[in-house]
Write a protein that binds this DNA or RNA. Structure first.
Length: 416
RNA sequence: GUGGGUGUAGCUCAGUUGGCUAGAGCACCAGAUUGUGGCUCUGGGGGUCGUGGGUUCGAGUCCCAUCAUCCACCCCA
């Protein structure tokens, strides 16, 4: 217990951390190009924020949040989701009063009390964006195309973009009515899960994975059939915008998102190579969110992309990550005098922007060479009493085996 | 929350119908000419066999419980 990470969490060791860094670097670069600014919100929020924003009846709020009381009996919740905290900050800092739109990106840890399995953790990371202040369908296109470019830029090829519209508060009641009537009449034929979904959130019945249910749902009404003219127009323009950018998508009228705040556009990116949890990113429009959190009515659209799942998908497709830089110079010092000189030498080399390392394990020369080799050192500086007396050092090229003598004063220059 | 699989060295695993001081490969340390890595050879260190009970003359092997982990359902990234 003491020596294992908590369930559903994992240590990201250097080899893996390098992959995260690469993914994050690409993400930051693309965000910068598209003029999204970084925002960092707290790792925990008042529980009420998630309850309200995500929806009391959602699975996240019902059973997946890390909620606790602090020492002042305030109910706090570890960030269960990326959008709500950004919306909260948007309101708290009066950003709605500035010129719109505002575009944010974040790289943040998300916490959910789930039962772990492949691609599903209790702490995971998301790269996400939130785009506030405009209902323009091209904002949706900007957001979706950013995610799309992110995947492509990293080298991901085999993934689908699923697209749907789920209407707005104007047109949803009519749809809800039709769906409820449809489902109500054949409730006894649906699986127990669907029966409970019917009570809590009828739209979620649509994407039940049970074949028997899907058979009964063949003729079920879908949101697209009921959207109002303006929602239909919005959806149409999103599709045209994506097409204009050469982004392929698959319309899926059954795609429904599990968070209450979504309106209109809903999308999901899916990889089929990483097990059952194939959703590598998802998002949509949330025009009612800011208002429901206590701010002025403000439209928004965004996505969240799971970094761990993304890396899994990349690896499944055999995408290689850039190798982390190897050690440039290893100083092999012999004896305490040389060791002392090596210490100051290291500083000089590092100042010259070289990755420099030496031995602190009291190894002999042979073992130091081995260590240097293990670290992938390109060159080794051998420094013993002989060299020290003459103010020089031997520089060995580890790939060719060639050795030359260089004066200590020239060393940094020579190695650079 | 439900179901199934798996827990032996740092890692990947072997361990015969229960039977000697629990093994291999990799990794680590040392040596093979005095101050030179990779390859090879030799030697060495390292294991509460997940944990706790039980059965037995005897348990890594069988039984129970528990914990952890993996996979799937639910749901999501």
């Amino acid at each position: 217990m003491l020596t294992t990470a908590p369930r559903g969490t994992m240590d990201i060791l250097p080899a893996q951390a390098a992959k995260f860094q690469h993914v994050e670097n690409v993400f930051r670069t693309l965000c910068r190009q598209a003029n999204f600014q970084e925002i960092r919100t707290p790792m925990f929020e008042h529980s009420e924020l998630f309850n309200r924003a995500v929806g009391e009846q959602t699975d996240i709020v019902q059973k997946e949040m890390y909620t606790f009381l602090d020492r002042s009996e305030r109910s706090l919740t570890l960030r269960a989701e990326g959008t709500a905290p950004v919306a909260r900050a948007f309101i708290e800092h009066g950003i709605y009063a500035q010129a719109q739109p505002t575009k944010y990106y974040y790289i943040a840890q998300i916490f959910r009390y789930e039962k772990p399995q492949q691609g599903r953790l209790r702490q995971h990371q998301q790269c996400g964006v939130e785009f506030f202040g405009t209902r323009h369908p091209y904002a949706d296109v900007e957001v979706i195309s950013l995610a799309y470019r992110f995947y492509r830029q990293l080298g991901l090829r085999q993934f689908d973009l699923l697209l749907n519209t789920i209407g707005c508060p104007e047109c949803r009641p009519a749809y809800r009515q039709a769906l409820t009537e449809f489902l109500g009449s054949r409730l006894q034929h649906l699986c127990p899960d669907c029966q409970s979904r019917f009570e809590r959130n009828p739209m979620r019945v649509l994407d039940c994975k049970q074949e028997a249910c899907q058979a009964f749902l063949q003729d079920a009404p879908t949101p697209v059939d009921y959207v109002c003219p303006s929602c239909a127009e919005h959806y149409q323009q999103v599709k045209e915008g994506l097409t204009a950018l050469g982004i392929e998508f698959k319309e899926n009228p059954r795609l429904v998102r599990g968070l209450d705040y979504y309106t209109n556009t809903a999308f999901e990116f899916y990889s089929y190579h990483i097990g059952a949890q194939g959703a590598i990113g998802g998002g949509g429009r949330y025009d009612g969110l800011v208002e429901s959190c206590g701010g002025p009515a403000t439209p928004g659209v965004g996505f969240g992309i799971g970094t761990e799942r993304l890396i899994m998908a990349l690896e499944a497709e055999g995408v290689t990550f850039p190798a982390p830089p190897a050690v440039d110079v290893f100083i092999a010092a012999l004896g305490s005098q040389a060791e002392a000189r090596a210490l100051t030498l290291l500083g000089e080399l590092r100042k010259a922007d070289l990755i420099a390392e030496f031995d602190l394990m009291g190894r002999g020369l042979k073992a130091q060479m081995k260590q240097a080799s293990r670290l992938g050192a390109k060159r080794v500086v051998v420094l013993g009493d002989n060299e020290l007396e003459r103010g020089v050092a031997i520089v060995r090229n580890m790939s060719s085996g060639e050795q030359t003598e260089v004066s200590l004063g020239e060393l940094a220059n020579y190695l650079r």
